[in-house]
Design a protein around this nucleic acid. Structure first.
Length: 459
DNA sequence: CACTGGAGCCAC
DNA sequence: AAACGTGGCTCCAGTG
């Protein structure tokens, strides 16, 4: 990866300097609360552990493993469940071992296993996040790292600890950890996220008419429309959950090179069979699909015909319509790949030349993921500079690929938010004209308490 | 004892 | 024709 323009060089140079300022500023931690949370979780984990040790399964475990018995070993648990207690391993890891992950374990109806999963969740939360943060706190500030030289796509990465993967989807974990991350006194934590940034960059990159049209029309919603097709529903019956699965398991998966054999399987396992997903009318999606004649997934084997009446066949047809819906995308992604094959390199819209050995899917992903982050990075640079030049008390404290976290002094709230909106949605389009092919939008959330309590900002 | 790869799980 | 991408961290198991 090489910059081919002065602008691209400066993006990395100034980006590294700006991120150094972010690291130096640090993010404030409620250390007392953090320590209390760790202590509370320890008590819960200890309680659950003693339950496990009074369970029959633990006796089988000790018979099998003797002195080596270790409750922390999933490998040992797998051997006990699948070789001693007669449960069937349904999936194997790439090296041929039985999978002993959450998906496999939730299918086993034993209170031991239920407790085990609960402990594992809490342990992850405790060691990776709570202790991970605790270890790095100096005074009451955490100075984590933001790197620009590690990700192959020219995204950033974060470490020690990784502030870019703090739980949020699991509300309990999100609350326990994020509520320890707080604003400075007299400040408010403000998070500004780009709305559907990668999709918009994708539309700019392929210049597909319908992709652009979807973004231009705020009443339209590609994920909702595709969900309606995938689950054979009217648009009004597409629930938030179904939209979520359509977006992540089909739209993005397909744009980044997956296809119906895999997307149908994932949708079926997670949306149809998984976590009791319903239509917005409350009908379980599995029941709804059955009423439409789709009761089976299909074989989902590469090279095999997807049989009529299966979900696999249906998703194959939705995929065909997806290509018809976005014809320039379908055509240009092939040309894009062929051009790489003959030249051995490709060019990012932000001015970086990438040469080397890449897979087809790399070619689909990198030119979207990299430039999408570059919009955020350019905005971060402007914000850091501006806050410094204006002598403001607010500081940028973190960045998560498409969002900025700013610790804003309360009297500066309106100015900082207005400036961030201007920079992120307008100025960046003056800087890179390709980004003006779509409207850019941001969502602003804020909390005076902590990162968990953030609520939509109403200026 | 240091190190590595596998497996798992968290984010975008 | 191939078959969603990028990261970081932890624990275990195996190696030398």
């Amino acid at each position: 990866m090489k910059p081919t323009t002065l602008d691209a060089y400066q993006l990395m140079h100034e980006g590294a300097l700006a991120l150094a300022d972010v690291e130096e500023a640090g993010i404030r931690i409620d250390v007392e609360r953090l320590d209390q949370t760790i202590a509370d979780i320890d008590v819960v984990i200890d309680g659950l552990y003693s339950q496990l040790q009074n369970d029959k399964v633990w006796y089988s475990w000790k018979e099998r493993w003797g002195e080596k018995s270790n409750l922390g070993s999933r490998y040992q648990l797998g051997k006990v469940l699948f070789e001693e207690l007669g449960y069937k391993a349904k999936k194997l890891t790439p090296t041929g071992r039985a999978q002993v992950n959450e998906e496999a374990l939730t299918q086993i109806n034993l209170s031991f296993v239920k407790n085990y999963l609960r402990i594992e969740k809490l342990k992850k939360l405790r060691t990776t996040y709570l202790l991970g943060i605790r270890r790095e706190v100096v005074g009451e500030y955490l100075h984590a790292f933001f790197n620009l030289h590690l990700a192959r796509t020219m995204r950033s990465s974060a470490s020690e600890p990784n502030l870019q993967n703090i739980p949020i989807r699991d509300t309990e974990a999100g609350r326990l950890i994020r509520s320890c991350i707080i604003p400075r006194d007299g400040h408010t934590l403000v998070e500004i996220d780009y709305s559907s940034l990668e999709y918009r960059v994708c539309a700019c990159f392929y210049q597909d008419e319908n992709m652009l049209a979807y973004v231009a029309d705020p009443t339209s919603d590609v994920h909702r429309d595709v969900a309606a097709e995938l689950f054979m529903l009217d648009q009004d019956d597409v629930s938030k959950d179904l939209r979520f699965y359509a977006k992540n398991q089909f739209v993005f998966a397909t744009l980044y090179g997956s296809y119906y054999v895999n997307t149908s399987k994932n949708l079926w396992n997670e949306a149809v069979l998984g976590a009791s997903v319903t239509t917005s009318g409350g009908v379980p999606i599995r029941k709804h699909l059955a009423s439409k004649g789709i009761k089976q997934l299909g074989m989902c084997k590469p090279g095999h015909t997807a049989l009529k009446g299966t979900f696999e066949r249906h998703v194959k047809q939705v995929e065909e319509r997806f290509k018809e819906r976005f014809p320039q995308w379908a055509e240009r992604k092939e040309i894009w790949w062929q051009r790489y094959l003959s030249s051995g390199s490709f060019q990012m819209m932000t001015g970086f030349s990438c040469s080397g050995v890449f897979t087809r899917n790399d070619l689909y992903n990198y030119p979207i993921q990299g430039p999408a982050f570059h919009l955020l990075l350019w905005s971060l640079i402007q914000m850091v500079k501006w806050l410094k030049d204006e002598g403001m008390k607010s500081v940028v404290v973190a960045e998560v690929h498409d969002s900025l976290l700013i610790d804003v002094e309360n009297s500066e709230l309106d100015d900082v938010i207005a400036k961030a909106k201007q920079v992120m949605t307008k100025d960046v389009q003056d800087h890179w004209r390709w980004a003006a092919r779509v409207p850019l939008e941001v969502e602003v959330e804020a909390s005076e308490k902590n990162w968990y309590e953030k609520k939509p900002w109403k200026g």
